[in-house]
């Protein structure tokens, strides 16, 4: 509830926000409560190092965007946050990732419990080859919800929150594969919302979509940040500038710079960031 207040304050007046420093001690983050933090995170695919000493704090109920050229490790980093890299063979991780202060790579941690709290939307829309209803109800069902009425409510609420209810309410029992790419992606967001996560990871959610669908998704992200901590990977800098509060720039596996989005785009501190933002590479 505390965080909600901060949220409100933020919206009321624009509070003065100091940049979230890379490798900064937690106390240095003044206005944000940290949701996920990483310290000295190294990730290897076999012998190839994909992430190098990444230390980053991700604030709660804000949109954090990761930008950088393709292959820079931003998607990889995103996937470490809900341990999706576990499914990739030969992937080893050192360092520390903390979710609400709990080390998520602790062998005692139940990864299912983590993933309940960290939803994910993928680059390519990936609805299950089932009906809309079943897609959205899948998560709650997995988590043990059996009551049909409750499930119906969850489905409706999630679809509404993902701004796709109007388009789908008459076709809830049609296959999800019959919808357009943009609708499918919003359905995937609805599906992620259905389990009511605390954090939503979005891996280039709009990269395969047309401008109109992209705009809808961005709008949605803006809405969602009131309730959720959102982390979005994008290769589109305008998108990052439009939707995010914090931006982190990755380059060849390293976190180069992180800061307030406004600052970052107007006044980058590092040469590489500037080069990237101004379009000299990438």
């Amino acid at each position: 509830m505390e965080t909600m207040e901060i949220q409100k304050n933020q919206e009321a007046g624009t509070p003065e926000i100091k940049t979230v420093m890379r490798s900064a001690p937690r106390s240095a983050v003044l206005h944000y409560e940290t949701k996920v933090s990483t310290r000295d995170l190294n990730l290897f695919y076999g012998t190839k190092q994909a992430l190098k000493d990444v230390s980053l704090d991700i604030p709660v109920k804000q949109v954090t965007a990761f930008i950088g050229p393709s292959g820079c490790g931003k998607s990889t980093y995103l996937r470490t946050l809900n341990r999706m890299n576990d499914t990739i063979p030969g992937c080893t991780i050192t360092g520390e990732v903390k979710f609400d202060g709990i080390d998520i790579y602790d062998p005692k941690l139940d990864v299912v419990e983590l993933r309940k709290r960290v939803g994910m939307v993928f680059q390519k829309s990936n609805p299950f080859p089932k009906s809309i209803w079943e897609n959205v109800a899948y998560g709650p069902k997995i988590l043990g919800e059996k009551n049909k009425t409750t499930l119906n409510e969850i489905v409706e609420k999630s679809l509404r929150r993902a701004a796709i209810w109007e388009e789908t309410k008459d076709r809830l029992h049609h296959s999800a594969l019959g919808f357009s790419g943009g609708q499918q992606q919003r359905l995937c967001i609805a599906r992620a919302l259905a389990t009511n996560p605390e954090v939503i990871l979005m891996d280039e959610p709009a990269s395969a979509l047309d401008p109109i669908s992209t705009a809808k998704i961005e709008e949605l992200i803006f809405e969602l940040k009131k309730e959720y901590t959102i982390i979005i990977v994008t290769h589109n800098m305008q998108q990052a500038a439009r939707v995010s509060d914090i931006t982190a720039f990755f380059y060849i596996g390293e976190l180069i710079e992180v800061g307030e989005t406004r600052d970052m785009f107007t006044n980058p501190k590092k040469k590489q960031t500037e080069d990237y933002i101004t379009g000299r590479f990438g």
């Binding site: 809900n82 993933r115 994910m120 993928f122 998560g139």
Partner: peptide, 21 residues
Amino acid sequence: PREVRDASLALGATRLQTIRK
């Protein structure tokens, strides 16, 4: 597709649930 499996896992399904459903 791998993506569909990932989606299920990311929703908090266990490996067996993903296989079964």
